[in-house]
Write a protein that binds this DNA or RNA. Structure first.
Lengths: 217, 217
DNA sequence: GTCTATAAATAGATAGAC
DNA sequence: GTCTATCTATTTATAGAC
């Protein structure tokens, strides 16, 4: 969420239109991409008009950047905290995975948005955005290195391991959103998967991928 | 590739402008998405002009549909052929994985395009497109079921297994394209990964995920 | 803070010459 | 088959009233 600390506080919940714009923008950018969304669409979804968008944000691109940065900051914090836990690497890793899945639940716009950013090679991303992405990857690398140093994990390419864990989580979350469209649920590939089953599967898959010893049940 | 069989053949390689449009469109849609690409961009990339696009294709959307369908047909064929091999399921599976990686090499526009289609919930996809997607998923399901029936694979949710295999492959291929942008290669997360290492990793990961017995080396 | 109205640029699509 | 010129609609962004 965007920081509200810099703006004046008023009493009696007087509608935070900036937050409404942010949320509407996040949902729409996630669903249709930067170019697929018009300022008018965002304004309508936030039950406001064009002018209010520009009252709160400098430009469409600036608004998009805030949405992406908010998302990356959250993931960066999650990864860094997981890597800093005083636990063995497998616990750190499963915590990271559970956190990612939970985050996709709390910020449903996050998975498609991140998927698209990667798919497009993040052309709209300035240096500070790349720095945020680097934070996540670095923290993940720390977990892996620690697991390998302790003999818990086998040696694997860090980039490929990263893709192997991030990929399915993002893809499945995006799939869930796609399944929500009318007439999709009948198709087997859009079948609903319980949250708990998802988490278990992803954690098992990661440990099976990395485990140095024979596979665990 | 689009079928050229319906059009007249001329001698001396007289430039197939339709194929040029198709390739340019595939590359651009892949890199920037449907809404991120203008007809003019495609025309320029194909060293033609707007009018030629509409001479060959009915509309921007029709052109996009052809690109997506061509891709899905190719993956569908790959998956169906892998599932029809007279081999044990693990061989079928590794063949499917190797084929996917090879396809991403031959049609570099495929991974980002498919990633985006999933991320967006395929809003532009008509019934016949969904049928193509279903073909791929069904063939994958056959491989899994056969592996489980023969005791080679453990029981896993088909959808989650599908995401776990497709996700990393697509994500990594998209990452590779993103890495090609200037100033990216220095970052660790955009480091180059040899083709062979990628294939081995993905096949190992899939087998470790699904294997019924203890992990294989 | 919120709105209407409008400017200025861009994009999908077509007409028609060659 | 290939081109230039153009129509029309949409879209980002701003001006200014309330």
């Amino acid at each position: 969420m965007p920081s509200t600390s810099t703006r004046r506080r008023r009493r009696l919940t007087p509608r935070d239109s900036r937050a409404d714009v942010f949320t509407a923008a996040a949902e729409l950018f996630s669903a249709r991409g930067f170019d697929g969304v018009g300022i008018d669409d965002i304004a309508h979804a936030a039950r406001l008009n064009k002018a209010m968008i520009y009252y709160h944000f400098d430009s469409k691109r600036a608004l998009y950047r805030e949405v992406v940065h908010d998302m990356l900051r959250a993931v960066g914090t999650l990864a860094t905290e997981a890597a800093s836990r005083p636990d063995p690497a497998d616990v750190q890793l499963t915590a990271f995975i559970a956190g990612l899945i939970q985050m996709a639940d709390e910020r449903p716009w996050f998975p498609p948005l991140m998927l698209r950013e990667i798919a497009e090679g993040a052309p709209r991303l300035e240096p500070d955005t790349l720095a945020l992405m680097k934070t996540v990857f670095t923290a993940f690398g720390r977990i892996l290195a620690e697991g390998q140093a302790s003999g818990l994990f086998r040696p694997v390419n860090t980039v490929l391991a990263y893709m192997s864990i991030l990929g399915p989580i993002l893809l499945n979350a995006a799939r869930e959103r796609a399944a929500a469209r009318p007439g999709r649920l009948e198709l087997p590939m859009f079948a609903e998967v319980p949250h708990s089953e998802l988490t278990t599967h992803m954690q098992q898959a990661a440990l099976r991928l990395l485990s140095a010893q024979e596979s665990r049940p």
